[in-house]
């Protein structure tokens, strides 16, 4: 009656351009994902082998290879972001400006199509980002045999083997290292009272730095219980933290006082952040 249904907006060229742009975007991300999969498939066995073969206690060669690989994945991620910013988003804005008002029925079909295009492209990018995160997580997990408990037990056995094999530098008398020390320590000779310096092996020194990780490994199930609680239960976190620090203190009993102060600090920090 008022001519509202006359002069409907008609732009088949725009519809085709939307279709092609969407298809190009999907093909582009498909190619990146395929390359990502190929990279991870080739890299994971190499990372595991490198970790197992590397005698460096800090596993630096493994770490360098890992950061190189995640660096390449970041390049792919950045490539996708730049393509979205240079091609998809400007296209969306430009297309919107040529369409009639959204509230008019004349352009409704085109606005709907453009909205579906936007959602499809953003969702596809989101899926790509998920694949990137999965790939990075898979690479980070490619660590070979990293059970700290095995390493710790091996060092305990080794220590028991060697603890009676030291001699006083002054009188040659037999020295027994009474417990596992993680840093250079004075040992007094029971025969001539001379002060000797015992320096633990690199592997035992490493145990000190790995003690917390081992304690966390032993109590991971409690942390999981806290993280799965809904809503997050602070009592479960405290239970985890107390158990973790108890395990830590079993491994490095000489650090009990310092660890307790650190425990109190972490508990306080968590209560501040939790509430």
């Amino acid at each position: 009656m008022f001519g509202f249904f006359k002069n409907k907006y008609d732009n088949p060229a725009l519809l085709e351009e939307i279709r092609q742009t969407e298809e190009k975007w999907f093909v582009f991300l498909d190619k990146l994902e395929l390359r990502l999969d190929q990279l991870c498939a080739a890299a994971i066995p190499e990372l595991i082998a490198l970790f197992d073969q590397d005698s460096d206690p800090y596993k630096r060669a493994h770490s360098r290879m890992l950061t190189g690989l995640t660096g390449q994945i970041s390049q792919m991620q950045q490539k996708a972001i730049e393509a979205k910013e240079e091609h998809i988003i400007p296209f969306l804005y430009a297309s919107n400006t040529v369409l009639p008002d959204l509230i008019s029925s004349a352009g409704r079909k085109y606005h709907d199509r453009l909205y579906r295009f936007q959602m499809a492209c953003f969702e596809r990018h989101h899926q790509f980002e998920d694949k990137v995160n999965e790939g990075i997580a898979a690479l980070r997990s490619a660590k070979g045999n990293s059970d700290l408990e095995v390493v710790y037990q091996r060092q305990l056995t080794e220590f028991e083997r060697i603890k009676n094999k030291f001699s006083c530098k002054q009188c040659g008398g037999k020295l027994t290292i009474q417990k596992m020390f993680f840093i250079a320590t004075y040992i007094q000779c029971p025969f001539c009272q001379a002060q000797n310096t015992y320096t633990p092996s690199t592997e035992i020194q490493m145990l000190f730095h790995q003690a917390r990780s081992l304690a966390e490994q032993r109590t991971a199930h409690l942390l999981q219980k806290y993280e799965e609680s809904r809503p997050k239960n602070p009592a479960l976190y405290q239970q985890y933290l107390r158990s973790m620090f108890d395990e830590w203190n079993k491994i490095t009993p000489d650090m009990l006082e310092e660890n307790e102060r650190f425990y109190q600090r972490l508990l306080k920090d968590h209560s501040i952040n939790h509430y």
Binding site: I183, T199, E258
Partner: peptide
Amino acid sequence: VEMPVWQEANLLWQERMKEDA
């Protein structure tokens, strides 16, 4: 200082930093 003294101080200074909120 001798090595055991340095190594203990090294360790304990790091503990102080952990404790210091």
